[in-house]
Design a binder for these strands. Sequence first.
DNA 1: GGGCCGATTGTT
DNA 2: ACAATCGGCCCG
Length: 180
Amino acid sequence: MKAIISSAKLHCEEFYARSTLKVAKDLLGCYLNRRLPSGLVLNAEITEVEAYTANDPACHAFNGKTKRTQVLFGPPGRAYVYFIYGMYNCLNVVTEPDGIPGAVLIRGLNGIADSGAKLNGPGKICKYWQIDRELNGVSLLALDSPLWITKRADGTSPKILKSERIGISQAQDRLWRFYT
DNA sequence: GGGCCGATTGTT
DNA sequence: ACAATCGGCCCG
């Protein structure tokens, strides 16, 4: 058995089975980890997120469950990856208890592979980290997952700023974009 | 089957 | 400002 993670710990399902707004803010400062098909593992600190909830006109799940959005209604702690603008994929983490839709969009990373480089924008993150719809629905909780999230090692929490969400045409008054 | 739109991004 | 580029969803 090989150890993928030494010091950092995975969140458990209970972490994701909470209010989407709380999960969004708590994910800031955590680390997104990605095992590429080549075997190479990338990791970087989450620095920007957005929350999308059941009673939110900007959420894909707002108009009910469809083939595309069904993972939003499923168990928490899974990846929701959708294809947008004919070119880009966006990565979300599913929140709320099973049966209630909700997700946190990952919009920004910092310190990619210890290089210190920043990666801004959900489309670019998925492009550079080879995240596409094949990962839609995968659990982030299993150690053999190609995608998982770990807590920050020092146990501290970053200072959180908020603003309107980017690129939406509805519910623009909700300050549900959080960043560090 | 047709048409419109989108949780984006890079270029004009 | 706008083009790139295509799946989902609604309508008929």
